[in-house]
Simulated scan of single mutants.
Amino acid sequence: MSGIPEDMRVINLGLPKSGTTTLGEALRRAGFRVADWKIRPGQSKSIRGFVGKLMYSGWFETGDPLHYLGEFDAFTEIDVIREGKNLWPQSDWALLAAIRATYPGARFLLSWREPAAHADSMRRWSNLGRSRLPENAVPGLPAGFGHAPGELERWIEGHIAFCRQVFAGAADYMDYDTADPDAKARIGAFLGVSLPWWGKANENRNHPGSEAD
C-alpha cells in the first residue's frame, strides 16, 4: 500500500463511544494528522477548540467545513455535546456534501457497534447517556428522549441507516463494525494505507462493561 495521498481527508461519521479514539490512534500511527473531538494545546500552531465547532465555523463563514482544519487530514470524532455546544456534523448532509465537493480525495468512514452494547457504553460514560443526550435536542433524538429503555438504541440504529442511505453505492464511503476482526484490514484497504496498529483505546475503566468501549 502507498503512503497517504496529499488530497486525502478522512472523516469518521461515528457517534460517541463507537471506537472513535481507537480509530484516531490507528490513523495517527499510520502517519495521519488526526483531530479527534478537540484540538488541544500543542496540536496546532493557530487554532484550538472542538472539531465540530470549527467545522461549522468554516462551513458558514467560507463554505468549506475544513477551512480552519488545514493542519489535519483525519477527523475521528466530530460531534460535541458539552459546554453549551450541541453540534453533530455527521448528521448534516449539507455540510458533508460540502466536504465531498471541496475535497475529491475525501473518504468517509462510519464506525459502529451493536446498538445495545453501544447504548450501554454511552450510559456508563460520565453523564453522556444519562443526561447530556436525553436533555438536548440531538438530530434524530429530540430533547426528552433517550431515558427510556430502547430509545438510545433506536437512535443509534437510525444514524447507521441515515449514513448508509445518503452514501448508498458511494465508493468514498465504508462502514465497519468495531467488533469485526477484519476491521483493520478493511479500513487499510479502503484508505489505501497500511495500519501498523489496531486495538482498544479510551476504555471505560471506572465503569467497565462486558465489552471494551
Rank of each mutant, 00 (worst) to 15 (best):
Q165T: 15
R48I: 05
L95H: 11
F145S: 11
P41V: 13
I39Y: 00
D213R: 07
G49V: 02
R48M: 14
F108D: 02
R186E: 10
R124H: 08
D73H: 09
P89I: 04
P139C: 14
R29L: 12
E203H: 05
A98F: 02
V80R: 13
P89R: 01
I4L: 13
E157V: 04
M1C: 09
G24W: 01
L191R: 01
E211R: 10
H67Y: 15
A137E: 14
G70E: 14
D79I: 00
L96E: 02
P149C: 05
E25G: 01
A201G: 11
G14H: 06
P16Q: 13
E114C: 07
W112V: 10
P41N: 09
W197D: 03
S210D: 15
M122N: 07
P139L: 12
T22I: 08
F75S: 03
S18E: 02
E151W: 05
W37Y: 07
L128D: 03
S131M: 09
V10L: 07
L191M: 08
G150C: 09
A30Q: 11
A183C: 10
D177K: 07
W155L: 04
T102G: 07
G70Q: 13
A171P: 08
A201S: 15
G158L: 04
I156V: 13
L15Y: 13
M122L: 14
E135M: 06
E71N: 06
G169H: 01
N136G: 05
H67I: 00
L110W: 08
G144F: 00
R82L: 09
R154K: 14
R82H: 15
K45A: 13
G31L: 01
V51E: 14
N86Q: 09
I187P: 07
R29K: 15
G188K: 06
G209D: 08
F60P: 00
A148N: 04
S57C: 06
R9C: 05
G199N: 09
I11K: 11
A201W: 06
I156G: 10
L13A: 04
R107I: 03
E157H: 07
G3Q: 13
E6D: 13
N204A: 10
Y173M: 12
